[in-house]
Design a protein around this nucleic acid. Structure first.
Lengths: 153, 153
DNA sequence: TTGCTCCTCACGTCACGTGAGGTGGC
DNA sequence: TTGCTCCTCACGTCACGTGAGGTGGC
């Protein structure tokens, strides 16, 4: 856990961790973190003068989000990047809401975010429905094993 | 749809279909069906004298099961094969319940099936829980977009 | 004969896993 | 100095995608 000597590049963030610790905290591999960066999904907000990656808490949140979309909904990294891009634009226009971008831009970003989240919600509901049906089927199979000899008639 | 000229290898089954039709009915690719066979997960119960694969309804059920385990729970093909093997032993000992295998074998098979299905149920519940939490979070985000300007205090 | 589907190689791809060889701070 | 973690290639792997070149029944 390094707090000093970090070459910043954005936010002012306390406790940073190297890639190994970051990977453990997110439940992913070191290789995966590097790969997500290579694919343009994340960029550790800090690094040492020697070139070691340093992850802030906000970076970990982003990584966990990537895994959520990947594991729970089966999106590939291109699809995940699209969603993250929309979310990034949303937080960007929120964080400097008195800045350059005009109202038309904002309306467009909000519409895109609403569309994306609507799609996401539908995907989640579909998956929950399928899983619930699958669970019922498994329950039925368990019942049939515990009550093995069936006599028809 | 071929019904005649099929070289059987097991059950007596009406309406068989070639691999293209089978793939469409299961929502998978032709390549995937061949790959599952190569990996030992399925074996089309019939084929033509020319060597074309012919799939019965029971084959399609098996393929859909493979996809269920793969898409909904994220199992790899090795894990899926293990589950299918247990299920196969279960249906086998049910179909000839007066035959060779003794009671000890049956007890062991039933225990294995119960353990596997218990695991499966736990996995499904965990996934439903995570998806439900994710849905709630998305709902919160949608709310925040629709009620954009927040004043704290 | 033309068109469609089927077949078997076999190489490409996505999301990493896994060493190979080398550097850097307690 | 030793140990641990970090770095960048770069090749391997799993679950297929995608032609290449050829065969077979309406």
């Amino acid at each position: 856990v390094a707090t000093v000597g970090a070459v910043s590049s954005g936010e002012v963030d306390g406790d940073l961790r190297a890639i190994g610790q970051a990977a453990r905290e997110c439940g992913v591999s070191v290789r995966a973190l590097r790969y997500y960066q290579e694919m343009g999904l994340i960029k550790p907000s800090h690094h040492t003068s020697g070139g070691n990656r340093l992850y802030a808490e906000s970076d970990l949140v982003r990584v966990r989000r990537i895994r959520e979309l990947q594991e729970l909904l089966g999106f590939n990294l291109d699809e995940i990047r699209e969603i993250l891009t929309i979310e990034d634009q949303l937080t960007e226009y929120r964080n400097d809401y008195r800045a350059t971008s005009d109202d038309l831009d904002r309306a467009r970003i909000r519409a895109a975010a609403l569309a994306a989240y609507g799609q996401l919600r539908a995907d989640i509901d579909r998956k929950i429905g399928r899983l619930t049906a699958f669970r019922d089927e498994v329950d039925g199979r368990i019942d049939r094993i515990q009550r093995p000899v069936e006599v028809s008639g």
